[in-house]
Simulated scan of single mutants.
Amino acid sequence: MNKLLATLIAGVFATSAYAQTTVTPANTEAVVKAEAKAEADVAKAEAKEAKAAAKADEKATKAVADAQEKKAKAHAKAVKAHADAAEKVTKADPEDRAKAVAKAEEKVSEANLKAEKTMIKADEKSLKKQVDAAADRATAAAKTEQVRAEAAADVHKAAAKH
């Protein structure tokens, strides 16, 4: 039992002594060059990502502005149709007023439907462009991550050679 205990204690001391020794990585010229190249590649990839993100944001913002403009025009056309219909009703003879009101209501409903369809299409187009912009941003981020991983692998490869 004493021998077993002595062996265990000696093993603990040996393990702790081994764990305290540090292995320094070889900072050779090749490793330093690989790290510098890796940093340059990552910086270049990050710049490309930022440029792609800015372009995507601009694209999305323009799409939203275009949609708002189309919706405003459609609304203005609907308002004009409402005004025209109301004017025709007021100009109609008293005996033809019921017929004029019916026609006016029909024109107003058609104008409203047309305006709604235009607004829906404008929103749909805007949303598609926003999704495309988000996909462009995500793709740029993924490419940057790929460059980072490749750079880290190159540094490790250079360290492993020396």
Rank of each mutant, 00 (worst) to 15 (best):
Q20F: 13
E49S: 12
D136M: 01
E95D: 13
Q68M: 05
D66Y: 03
K128Q: 15
L8K: 06
L5S: 13
A78R: 03
E69R: 06
A34V: 07
K37R: 10
D93F: 07
K37A: 11
D132N: 01
A74P: 01
A83Q: 15
K107S: 06
E95F: 12
A141P: 00
T28H: 03
L113D: 07
A56I: 04
T15I: 13
E116H: 13
T21P: 00
V101S: 07
V108G: 04
Q20A: 11
K73V: 09
L8D: 11
K3W: 14
K51H: 12
E150S: 06
Q146K: 15
V42S: 00
A152D: 12
K77F: 10
A63V: 06
A54Y: 03
D84C: 02
K51W: 04
N27E: 14
L4F: 07
K70E: 00
V23A: 02
D57A: 15
K107P: 05
T144S: 11
E116N: 12
K114G: 01
K129G: 10
A140N: 02
A10E: 04
S109R: 09
D154Q: 09
A133P: 01
A54T: 09
K128T: 13
A53M: 03
V31Q: 07
A78H: 01
A17K: 07
T22D: 15
A50R: 00
A83C: 07
E106M: 08
E39R: 05
A111I: 03
